[in-house]
Amino acid sequence: MGTVQVKPVVRHKQGLWEKSYIPEIAKGLKITMQHFFRNLSPIKENRTIFTRLYPEEVTVYPERFRGLHRLMLRNDGQVRCVACMCCSTICPANCIHIEAAEHDDPSVEKYPRVFVIDELRCIVCGLCVEACPCDAIRMDTGVHVHPYIDRGDAFLDRDLLMELGTLSMAVQGGER
């Protein structure tokens, strides 16, 4: 049997001041009243209520907020993706499915015949955007992933993803 470790705790002795309660109650009242009147103030910044009244007050997202994916476009409106499989390779959730096909234009070589993202599997890590060598996939739409009624609705295909797409500033192709 080991010895019992006893840690003596120093008791805070109440003096007459604290025992009479009145000054301590007044102190407490002061704090609650401060809160009360501060939160009554007409100027919103002065209040300390942190609740956001959600549907009325829209949340301002940070600039790098990762929302729904989108596929960027070439200058002629075709999909920018070259089906290099970088994103589907790095995706930790395995949610990107790409089937490559040969493009008619010899300077493009490959394009994704099928490009499907399962938004329910996506963990919104943003690694696909990091991995993409030609700025073809982005997550900067600011759109939440919708609630889907059917599980199949969550498979966003290429054309759907391209609807949100725009032109990229990056020059594609370069010299051979």
Binding site: H35, I49, T51
Partner: peptide
């Protein structure tokens, strides 16, 4: 309402 304001709630 009063308790909410005192406790920083809405």
């Amino acid at each position: 309402k009063q308790s909410a304001l005192i406790q920083n709630r809405v």
